[in-house]
Simulated assay, not measured.
Amino acid sequence: MLLNIKSYIRKPEVAELFSYAVFPDDQSVEKTVSEYESNEAWQLYGYEDGELLVGLAGYEKTGNEVILHHIAVIPENRGLGYGRGMILEIMTKEKPERVIAETDEEAVDFYRNLGFVVNSLGELYPGVERYRCVYEVEEEDEN
């Protein structure tokens, strides 16, 4: 179950999860945290397994789309369905027509396996190819 964690965004375990979704230095994590704090439209949810925060998903809903800004799962819990579960819960909550994410090559297979259509955006940063991942929600997917 997703829990709104925006109110405790400054906790170390949230910063650790952000470090898996952005360049893992203090400056990048701080910039990301500040973006969530200053933008009311950006939602931040975490997934707890018992007392352990195992993942987070940050997004905004614009019209009929959910733009997934960040998703991360602690390394020892990857491959257990937490990322997929967070995206499905967001889709159930927000009922979008489409979900959009931008990612690097490391996460492309994760999105493809969920049914996202993946297209290269080219090298947006020196030496780093980025990808746009789009999932078109069908009516039966929402139920």
Rank of each mutant, 00 (worst) to 15 (best):
M1Q: 10
L3N: 10
L3V: 15
L3I: 13
N4Y: 01
I5A: 06
S7T: 04
Y8F: 14
E13D: 15
L17Y: 07
Y20D: 00
V22C: 01
V22A: 01
P24E: 01
P24G: 05
S28F: 00
E30C: 00
T32H: 02
T32P: 00
E40Y: 01
W42A: 06
Y45P: 03
Y45V: 06
E48D: 00
G50N: 12
G50I: 13
L52H: 09
L53P: 09
V54L: 10
L56R: 01
L56Q: 02
G58A: 08
K61V: 09
T62K: 10
T62D: 02
V66P: 04
L68Q: 05
H69G: 04
V73G: 08
I74F: 02
G79T: 10
L80E: 14
G83Y: 08
G83D: 08
R84V: 07
E89R: 08
E89H: 03
E89A: 12
M91T: 11
T92N: 13
K93G: 00
E94A: 01
K95I: 03
K95N: 12
P96Q: 10
R98W: 02
R98N: 11
V99R: 00
E102M: 12
T103C: 12
E106C: 01
V108H: 08
D109R: 14
L114T: 01
G122M: 03
Y125A: 05
V128Y: 15
Y131Q: 11
Y131H: 14
R132M: 10
C133N: 07
V134L: 13
E136M: 10
D141L: 04
E142S: 10
N143V: 06
N143P: 05
